[in-house]
């Protein structure tokens, strides 16, 4: 029964990694200085944290209907997470929030709309 032990260890590692990424993303949401950089921090916990946690829970559940539901949740968040992040960013851009640039001496090609 070494296979079950390996699956167990891998799934715990995935769940721990997912938890760590989730907390890192939340810390970034608190620490980053302005809106445009907070977008990136939020997508850390939304992509890596979510993927690792769902994969770990899938390994824990084994081949059952529970796994199908977990994969459905994961696929849905995988598709809609970036979409809503893009929607927030686009709405902020449309309402006149200017994205700032730390790069000097280089002209942003069309950013100053």
């Amino acid at each position: 029964m070494t296979l079950t032990l390996v699956v167990e260890i891998v799934s715990w590692m995935l769940i721990l990694a997912g938890s760590a990424f989730t907390i890192i993303g939340a810390v970034g949401t608190l620490r980053f200085p302005n809106f445009w950089s907070r977008l990136h921090a939020a997508s850390v916990s939304e992509s890596a944290g979510m993927i690792f946690l769902v994969m770990g829970m899938c390994l824990q559940a084994g081949v059952t209907l529970v796994t199908v539901k977990l994969i459905l949740i994961g696929a849905f968040i995988f598709i809609t997470g970036p979409t809503s992040t893009h929607a927030v960013a686009n709405a902020a851009l449309m309402s006149g929030e200017k994205p700032e640039s730390d790069v000097t001496g280089e002209k942003a090609s069309k950013g100053e709309t």
Partner: peptide, 11 residues
């Protein structure tokens, strides 16, 4: 682009 943290497609 948006899914990889660090880059976000805005418009």
């Amino acid at each position: 682009i948006t899914l990889t943290p660090g880059t976000i497609s805005v418009d």
